[in-house]
């Protein structure tokens, strides 16, 4: 927004941007799904409620440089504030921080669950896999025969 002193009403902004914006990702598959690349969009869905660019207040949870997560919130002027949390032993601490600094203060309490869910998904993605995926075994008589022949050729 160029005029920070007179921010356009959110409803108007949404009507302008709902059909086309740089954040919007449309696909023809799955019945024409619409997703959003907006960092202030917790669920990446293109909707009035979750749009970060449109709403006066919005929460974002993004990965930070140090392997932790960053909480983004929006000021009244439209500027984004970033709070970074270092990776902690207990992920619950991060959720507590997020909820205490947003929903508990009456800042978008409707996004409480989404913010925690996104933080949880990000933290889970940092974890190393507990189990390695097993190597694919040949299935079917023909595939097994081919595998046996290949093993015999190696010897």
């Amino acid at each position: 927004m160029s005029s920070a002193t007179y921010p356009a009403p959110a409803d108007l902004l949404w009507e302008i941007t709902r059909n086309n914006t740089s954040f919007l990702v449309k696909r023809k598959t799955a019945g024409g799904i619409k997703l959003s690349r907006d960092p202030l969009n917790l669920r990446n869905v293109h909707s009035r409620k979750h749009s970060g660019a449109v709403n006066d207040q919005a929460i974002g949870v993004v990965p930070s440089d140090k392997g932790g997560i960053s909480l983004l919130t929006k000021k009244k002027s439209g500027a984004t504030i970033t709070h970074s949390y270092k990776p902690s032993k207990t992920s619950r601490k991060s959720y507590l921080h997020i909820v205490n600094s947003t929903a508990k203060k009456g800042y978008r309490p409707d996004l409480r669950g989404d913010a925690v869910a996104r933080a949880s998904a990000l933290i889970r993605s940092y974890r190393k896999p507990v189990k390695q995926t097993p190597e694919a075994q040949p299935r079917g008589a023909k595939a097994k025969k081919n595998a046996a022949a290949a093993a015999a050729a190696d010897l």
Binding site: V25, L35, R37, L42, R43, R118
Partner: peptide, 10 residues
């Protein structure tokens, strides 16, 4: 790879 990020919550 950036497109995959969109599916984090889906």
């Amino acid at each position: 790879a950036n497109d995959v990020d969109l599916l984090l919550m889906h």
